[in-house]
Simulated assay, not measured.
Amino acid sequence: MFIVRDGEVLLIEKLTGIGQGKVNGPGGKIDPGETASQAIVRECQEELHITPLNPVKVGELHFAMSDIPDIHCHVFIASEFEGEPTPTREANPMWTPIDEVPYEKMWEDDRHWLPQVLNGDIFNGRFQFEKEEILWQDVVFGETARDLWSGDRVC
Rank of each mutant, 00 (worst) to 15 (best):
residue 62 H to A: 02
residue 82 E to G: 14
residue 130 E to L: 13
residue 104 E to C: 03
residue 152 D to C: 08
residue 48 L to S: 07
residue 76 F to N: 00
residue 13 E to Q: 04
residue 35 T to Y: 00
residue 80 E to W: 07
residue 48 L to K: 05
residue 146 R to S: 04
residue 62 H to C: 01
residue 114 L to W: 13
residue 148 L to A: 02
residue 60 E to K: 02
residue 124 N to E: 12
residue 72 H to W: 13
residue 21 G to L: 01
residue 6 D to E: 15
residue 21 G to K: 03
residue 120 G to E: 02
residue 65 M to L: 12
residue 151 G to H: 05
residue 59 G to H: 03
residue 112 H to S: 03
residue 122 I to Y: 05
residue 148 L to H: 04
residue 67 D to T: 08
residue 34 E to V: 01
residue 134 I to S: 09
residue 79 S to N: 03
residue 98 I to Q: 06
residue 88 T to D: 01
residue 142 G to C: 14
residue 140 V to S: 12
residue 102 P to Q: 08
residue 60 E to H: 03
residue 94 M to W: 11
residue 139 V to W: 05
residue 90 E to A: 01
residue 80 E to I: 02
residue 78 A to Q: 10
residue 98 I to C: 12
residue 66 S to M: 07
residue 107 W to T: 06
residue 115 P to E: 07
residue 145 A to S: 14
residue 93 P to I: 08
residue 79 S to D: 01
residue 145 A to N: 11
residue 4 V to G: 13
residue 16 T to W: 10
residue 60 E to N: 08
residue 53 L to A: 08
residue 71 I to R: 03
residue 145 A to I: 07
residue 23 V to I: 15
residue 154 V to M: 02
residue 95 W to C: 00
residue 35 T to M: 00
residue 57 K to Y: 08
residue 66 S to H: 04
residue 89 R to P: 05
residue 26 P to R: 09
residue 30 I to A: 05
residue 88 T to H: 01
residue 74 H to I: 01
residue 78 A to W: 08
residue 42 R to F: 00
residue 3 I to W: 13
residue 113 W to F: 15
residue 88 T to P: 02
residue 149 W to R: 07
residue 43 E to K: 06
residue 19 G to R: 03
residue 112 H to Q: 04
residue 90 E to H: 00
residue 47 E to W: 07
residue 153 R to D: 04
